[in-house]
Each structure stands twice: as C-alpha cells, then as structure tokens.
C-alpha cells in the first residue's frame, strides 16, 4: 500500500512538473528532423572550431617567423667577382673584416659576427650533398648581423654603406621569402575566415528552412494562436526557443568534439621543437575563448534566423 502510495505520488508530481514545465504551445520538439538538425549544427560547429583553430595557429606561426627574422640580416661577400673571376680567400677575409667594422659603426646594428669556414660549409652542405669535398671549392664570406631595430631606412643605409666598400657585397634582409610566407599564411587565414562565414550561412539556411517546414506543419495551430490575439512576438518566441535549445545541444556537442580534436592534434604535433619555426600547438587563450564563444554564437545565429523567418511568414497572415 505504501509503495503504491509513493508510486502515485511521484506520478502526480511528474504531472505537476509537466504542467509547470509546459514550454511549448506547439509540439516543435516532436517534429521530424530535429535530431538531424542537432547533428548538422554539431558538425558545423566542429568545422568552425577546426577552421578558427587553424587560423589562430597560422597567425601565431607567422608572427613567430616575422619576429624571429625581422631583426636579422645576412651579408654575403660572393666568391665570384662580377665578370667571372674568383676572389681569393684572403680577399674575402679582408673584405669581411672591413665590412664587419663598417657595420659595427652603424647605430642600428647590435651585433656582427663573421661566420667561420666551418659554419659556411655546414650551411651549404645540404645543397651540395654529404660526399662532396669542399677542397678547392670557392666559399663566400658570410656575416650575420643582428639589428637593434630593423627599419627599412636602417637597412637601406646599410646597403649604401656596403656598396661603398665593394659593389659585389650583397645584403639579404630575408624580406622576399618572409613576405611570401606572410602572404601565404594571410591567404590561409582568409580561407579559414571564409569557411567560417560559409558555415554560419549554411547554419542560418538550415535553421530557416527547418522553421519554415515546422510552420507549415503546424500552420493550423499557428493560425489559431494568431486568431486568439497572440502577438507576433508570442508566436515567434515558441520557434525561437526551439531553435535555441536545438542549437545549444548541437553546438555543445560540436564544440566538445572540436576541442578534443584540437587537443589531440596539439599533443601529436609535440611542442614544435627548438627551431622557433613552429609554435607550440597547445590550446592558446584564443582557442579556449573560441571554444566558449562558439556555442553562444551558434545559439544567437539560430535564434535570430528562427525569429526573422517566423516574422516573415506571420506577416503574410491577415
């Protein structure tokens, strides 16, 4: 008897809860395709996490390259004199010394280092092959320069100084390939942004389409609410809430999966070594912020898409 009593009491309570928790005048959550829509939002959010994650990582990489190379210059004293004749090693050594002194005198220069023969050989060997001997091979003189501030004017001034010493001396500010790299990462970041935009538009289209079909499905009920004097906002709220809950569920799942994927990629890529070329692929502040903001953005997009779709359809009613 007691068991029966408590059974009935829980049943009563459930009925009471169902009544108080009545969220919908329209049974939108029972519409066909709700599961599919949640899955779609989840996939879209996952893709957005990936695209934005890639974009931030690229940005970080480009910044590292830029800051690592910006203040470094290499001065080359070619082994060959313009015209074809070879420069003697002693000539190269003499020119290197002179050039180094001239560079040190410039206020923008921090350190100057003439690279030894061994260093130069080590730099060149990857291009020549291990088995080739350097015996008798004319090697250029290389000077590594670190600037205090690598402004274009300072670099131009150095070029001018060097030309005064010898026409052949070449200053490499790494500008051209750095520029190419930055252009490449810029393009990739743009692509990521475009993908994110497409994802947002796709989500809007999917939500708007779903809302339209649900309005058609519940046309009679929507009309009834309208005839009973329900304002457009009252009716809109029903659909907006539906879209919001649906988007939240999908976006949370998608973000969780995306975050996990980023983490795994970060782990498998290691910490980028000591080359300074690759950034640490751990989740940065921007990534974490994205993971938090994306579900909010998805909900906002979904509920606004639902709102405007419903208002447009309602405007056609008398």
């Amino acid at each position: 008897m007691n068991i029966l009593n408590s059974l009935f009491r829980t049943k009563d309570k459930q009925l009471g809860v169902a009544e108080r928790g009545r969220r919908y005048d329209l049974p939108l959550n029972k519409s066909a395709g709700t599961g599919f829509l949640i899955l779609l939002v989840a996939l879209m959010t996952f893709l957005a996490v990936m695209a934005l994650g890639a974009s931030f990582t690229l940005g970080e990489m480009a910044q590292r390259w830029a800051s690592g190379l910006e203040n470094r210059l290499t001065v080359e004293i070619p082994a060959e004199i313009t015209g074809g004749a070879l420069r003697s090693p002693s000539d190269i050594a003499y020119l290197s010394e002179k050039t180094a002194e001239a560079l040190k005198a410039d206020p923008a220069v921090e350190t100057v280092e003439i690279m030894g023969e061994a260093d130069v050989q080590a730099l060149i060997s990857p291009w020549l092959g291990e088995d080739l001997s350097f015996e008798g091979l004319p090697l250029p003189g290389l000077i590594s320069v670190k600037m205090r501030i690598g402004t274009p004017e300072a670099i131009e001034r150095l070029r001018h100084t060097l030309k005064g010493i010898n026409q052949d001396i070449h200053l490499d500010a790494h500008e051209s390939w750095l520029k190419d790299l930055l252009r490449l990462t810029g393009a990739l970041k743009f692509a990521a942004a475009a993908i994110t935009l497409i994802i947002a538009l796709t989500t809007i289209a999917a939500i708007a389409g779903a809302v339209r079909s649900r309005m058609a499905e519940h046309k009679a009920d929507v009309e009834l609410l309208h005839l009973m004097g329900a304002s457009d906002l009252y009716i809109t709220r029903q659909f907006q809430r539906h879209a919001l809950i649906l988007a939240l569920r999908g976006a949370l799942a998608g973000t969780a999966a995306g975050g996990l994927a980023l983490l795994l990629i970060g782990l498998s890529a290691g910490n980028g070594g000591d080359t300074g070329l690759l950034p640490n692929l751990h989740l940065g502040t921007k990534h974490v912020l994205t993971l938090i903001l994306l579900p909010c953005a998805a909900c906002l997009i979904a509920s606004l898409a639902a709102r405007f779709t419903v208002l447009r359809v309602l405007a056609l009613m008398p």
Binding site: E19, R22, D25, K30, D221, L224, L225, M228, G229, A230
Partner: peptide, 18 residues
C-alpha cells in the same frame, strides 16, 4: 480548433497565457 497536443487545462489556459 483545440490544440491537439495540449491538455484540456492548457487549451483553456491559452488565452490567459497570451
């Protein structure tokens, strides 16, 4: 024109909720 998925109570309550 009752809303088929709403109980008698919720159907009657509708105008007040609106």
């Amino acid at each position: 024109r009752l809303l088929p998925h709403l109980s008698a109570f919720d159907n009657v309550a509708l105008p007040l909720r609106i």
